[in-house]
Amino acid sequence: MNRENNVYTILYASIMVIIVAVALAFTHQSLSEQQTKNVNIDKMQQILRSLHINASTNEAESKYNELIKNSYLVTPQGEKVEGSEGTKTSDPAFATDIAVDASKGLPVFEAEIEGRTIYILPMSGKGLWGPIWGYIAIESDGSTVYGADFSHQGETPGLGAEIATPQFGGQFDGKHLFRDNTFTSIAVVKPGQLVSDRDYVDGISGGTITSKGVNAMLLESVGQYKNFLMNLNAAKK
């Protein structure tokens, strides 16, 4: 059959499309389970990093299961949602992505470190280019930060992307979310600036918009847990 024939061309193109579609769909199907597992392990590593633990991919899952004793959802009023308890990846707390759907409740993870209970909350916000998110680990007084870990998807390397470094996240250790029983959050300001009415950390030089995004994320996203944290604070007293 002549190669330049119209029918041949159309036939050739159609067969090619079918073979390609089948090959890709098949590959995707067989690999998707492993891919989801990787996404889950990555999430566990982020939660562990907020606890100052750098787990490798192999040990992440076992370390996570060892330290995270409980996880559940809470309402904006601060009350536990009935039946939402469970630490498996399929359980509500781990499976919920607050950036997508927070209607069922807000996830809380409880870890036990050195005999103390530490509460880990997910946060989600907007950076310069795309989403930013992270996990903040808080002591049982509901105010003192034990650790924080931040991630981003497309911030500028060397600038906004620096929020993912321990140099940035480490600044939050020991800072307070509450002052005089009011939720003030922690401000992220231009390096060198001083703030008097709340705890603050230095933003990234040259990464102003990303730093502002982190500031807003702490205020709004962590702010959703305000009542839950206040209850913890009251219980401590």
């Binding site: 090619m16 499309v17 390609v20 090959a23 890709l24 590959t27 995707h28 690999l31 492993q34 891919q35 990787n38 996404v39 392990i41 990555d42 991919t57």
Partner: peptide
């Protein structure tokens, strides 16, 4: 099409076995 398919395959394999 050939190149795009191969690259998609490589990408899927990387997502499964070399996530970081």
């Amino acid at each position: 099409v050939v190149v795009a398919t191969l690259v998609t395959l490589v990408s899927e394999v990387l997502k499964a076995f070399a996530y970081d």
